[in-house]
Design a protein around this nucleic acid. Structure first.
Lengths: 152, 152
DNA sequence: TAAATTTACATCGCGCACGATTTAATCTTT
DNA sequence: AAAGATTAAATCGTGCGCGATGTAAATTTA
């Protein structure tokens, strides 16, 4: 079988396991996020807001690699659930500033056990601690590379 | 700042870079797949079919970690584009057998340059070959772990 | 063999993702 | 300051993903 053909096999692809692992990871968060009444992408937005409780849509997008076409509806849903408020900046009317409500701030306390839960799953697994660090670094490196590649 | 709080930072998460890298990777395939008139998930299904040109929906799902709620509409779209046909098994009327049309088989030739394109991007990047192998192995390991965790 | 269970796929509803376009505000240029 | 370009969000349409449920066929159990 030709080299080109061999590389068309699912097994030999880098991108498929990335795609599958990402989806299964999101699924893993499901039961942890359900009690908080948020989805995984909503959780990511909240992670950003828990670090910086007032931030523009643009900046959230820069952190999560998402744009307004995805964020606007998602943020509206978070606003409906009273976790955030959105308002136009007075300095620049184009900009929408997203900020946490007190309810949104409180949610952080409930969310604090989530990283621990996830961490426990990994420590119970066949992953060595050092291996995990390498893996995480490689993921970041890949992300950097992809970012460059897509911007160009 | 508390340990729990520190782990809520985006930077320290394993899952976010996984999520972001997966999305950006899909985006990277976009320009390569557009000429073939298929999406990335459709490409994955075709990868399976190019390995085994007759296969049930169930088996495709097992390979890609997808279920009929995702696959059925996707396969219908591939059928509309005349790349595949779907028919009920005569042995077991519950089972739907998916098979390539000649057009779907021909598409494989056009797709053969895709892995090369992707490979080139990596070889131009800061990724060492050995590093890449390690990374790929870790991804598979993660996928195995997630699979186990979700089944349980 | 009739009833209960399991299996394979389909359907439904909702929430992302994202390319493409629109709208309104701001900035730049002349 | 008016015209043109840029920017930030919003909107629109399409295609996933997936939990929950439905349907019909096959298998198991009673």
């Amino acid at each position: 079988m030709s080299q080109a053909c061999e590389q068309l096999k699912l097994e030999n692809q880098l991108c498929f396991p990335l795609y599958a692992a990402s989806r299964l990871t999101t699924k893993l968060y499901g039961p942890l996020l359900k009690p908080l009444d948020i989805t995984y992408p909503q959780y990511l937005v909240l992670l950003v807001l828990w670090e910086q409780k007032e931030i523009s849509v643009k900046e959230i997008g820069a952190r999560l690699f998402l744009e307004s076409n995805t964020l606007t509806p998602l943020l509206k849903r978070l606003e409906q659930k009273k976790f955030i408020v959105r308002m136009r900046s007075t300095q620049d009317e184009r900009t929408v500033i997203v900020s946490l409500t007190s309810r949104g701030e409180k949610l952080k306390d409930e969310a604090e056990t989530i990283p621990l839960h996830i961490h426990n799953l990994f420590s119970q697994s066949a992953f060595e601690k050092s291996e995990l660090v390498t893996f995480q670094n490689n993921l970041k490196k890949l992300l950097d590379m992809l970012r460059q590649e897509i911007d160009s």
